[in-house]
Amino acid sequence: MESIRQLEEWQGLRGINRVWEFGTPVETVFRAHTDPLWLARWLVPDGVELRFRRWDARTGGAWSYTVSTAGEDWTFYGSFHEVSEPWRIVQTVEAEADSHGPVLEVLDFLELPGGGCRLEAIAMFTSPAAREEVGGSEDDGGLGRLTALLSEVGTLSSHSR
């Protein structure tokens, strides 16, 4: 199954709702969001370095990483408010140098008929301006890189059977 992307921006509100579907099991897509080795492979574009400062993917845990490119560094951090494997992640996301404040993100991993995964993501921002800044990004949030990783993992697991 090919990945799909659906983006719905709530006009006048502070949220973005995104939906993706993968032909990969829920557990695998969930792991791609909680395992730092997998996350590092798809979260940032090629040529960008991702350094984890902290990663504790559990309810009550926290995370922080630095992204580096062309001599510039950006640090991001947040808290895991809920990690219910393999169905849900609720977390905050914030950039150290950002004046817009935190984003509340809810990721729901739903099983599709045939064993695929539907990932529904809701992001709530502190202001419409903050939503516009992120919503206008040219990066697709790593969807292409995530799809490639899931395809590679699926190929490897089918060869190991």
Rank of each mutant, 00 (worst) to 15 (best):
M1D: 00
E2W: 06
S3Q: 09
I4W: 07
I4Q: 06
R5C: 11
R5S: 14
Q6H: 10
L13N: 09
I16A: 09
N17Q: 14
N17I: 15
N17V: 15
E21D: 09
G23A: 05
G23Q: 01
G23K: 01
G23E: 02
E27I: 00
E27M: 00
F30L: 08
F30C: 00
R31A: 13
A32V: 05
H33A: 04
H33K: 07
T34R: 03
D35T: 06
D35S: 02
D35C: 03
W38E: 14
A40T: 03
A40G: 07
R41K: 12
R41G: 05
W42F: 07
W42P: 05
P45K: 02
G47E: 09
G47W: 02
V48Q: 07
L50M: 14
L50Y: 06
F52E: 02
F52Y: 05
R53K: 12
R54Y: 05
R54K: 11
R54M: 10
W55F: 14
D56T: 13
D56N: 06
A57P: 00
T59A: 04
T59M: 00
T59P: 11
W63R: 05
S64Y: 05
T66Y: 14
V67M: 11
S68P: 00
S68A: 01
T69Q: 13
T69W: 10
A70Q: 13
A70N: 07
A70I: 00
A70E: 14
G71V: 03
G71E: 08
W74P: 00
T75D: 07
T75R: 04
F76C: 12
F80E: 04
F80H: 07
H81V: 11
H81S: 09
V83H: 08
S84F: 10
E85S: 10
W87K: 12
W87Y: 12
I89F: 02
A95G: 15
A97C: 08
A97F: 11
S99K: 14
P102L: 01
V103E: 11
L107E: 11
L107P: 00
D108E: 09
F109W: 00
L110H: 13
L110K: 14
E111M: 12
E111A: 15
L112V: 02
L112P: 14
P113M: 01
P113T: 01
G115D: 02
R118D: 08
E120Q: 12
T126N: 11
S127M: 06
A129I: 08
A129P: 12
G135L: 11
D139N: 09
D139A: 04
G141Q: 10
L143W: 13
G144N: 07
G144F: 01
R145G: 10
R145L: 15
L146R: 04
L146G: 03
L149K: 04
L149M: 03
L156F: 06
R161L: 15
